[in-house]
Amino acid sequence: MAGKGFFIDTTLCTACRGCQVACKNWNRNGTIPTKNTGSHQNPPDLDGNTFKLVRFSEVETDGKLAWYFFADQCRHCLVPPCKDTIEGYVDDAVIQDEATGAVVFLEKSKEAPHEEVTSSCPYDIPRHRENGPMVKCTMCIDRVSNGLKPACVKVCPTGAMNFGELDEMIALANERLAKLKPKYPKAQLLDADQVRVIYLVVDDPKKYHKNAVASLNPGIDRKTALRRMARPAKGLIRTFVGV
């Protein structure tokens, strides 16, 4: 598979949140006023100014405690449903970069129905920026196209975040998986054949984050579902003919 990819090894992540902050730094993203709600995870969720979020999850299995960290971000799907959804409503609002495979929302994406774009994502990633477009991780396409690594990868101290040619990332992921499997029988790569951002986890992925693996319409409510059924034919045709 051509293009670029990430390999995120959660076994090396210490939740220092360097990636979360570096992402905001590079993208000049602002903040929201937060409160401590009894967790270290903050902001509480991805938002119009947060493209990358380290999720914290305390789980106890058979009396043994684990604290999992999941550096959540857009997976840059090989076939991105968000793109399909947006294009069902607006032209020139999203690109899938040929060289890298990065899925990038453009200004015009603000014209697409925001909730529907979000709910069409199997990982619940896209967010709407107040008075602005739909936003999410851009794969730091401005950095990458100038020979730099994405900001989150550059800053990661432990090697949890990796970036390169997708084939190389898949090879690296498989190598790490083989190494960890004897000690962690539940070790697995998440949706590795469908995305450009491959996570390695060593336990049930749901224990890391409810949307760690693709689920059908993760955030969809009844209203959105109904609206999707009635969406313009243009998008449906595109989907069916694979344009």
């Binding site: 979360q20 902050v21 905001k24 929201i32 937060t34 401590n36 709600t37 009894g38 903050n42 902001p43």
Partner: peptide, 29 residues
């Protein structure tokens, strides 16, 4: 620094579930 205060905004006190139960505290209170 807004990005850092967003991530850890307030002083907290960490405690066990047992102690919280003893004192009748809810998480985040």
């Amino acid at each position: 620094l807004p990005w850092l205060i967003e991530a850890e905004p307030q002083v907290f006190v960490e405690m066990s579930e047992e102690l919280a139960k003893l004192r009748g505290f809810a998480n985040g209170e």
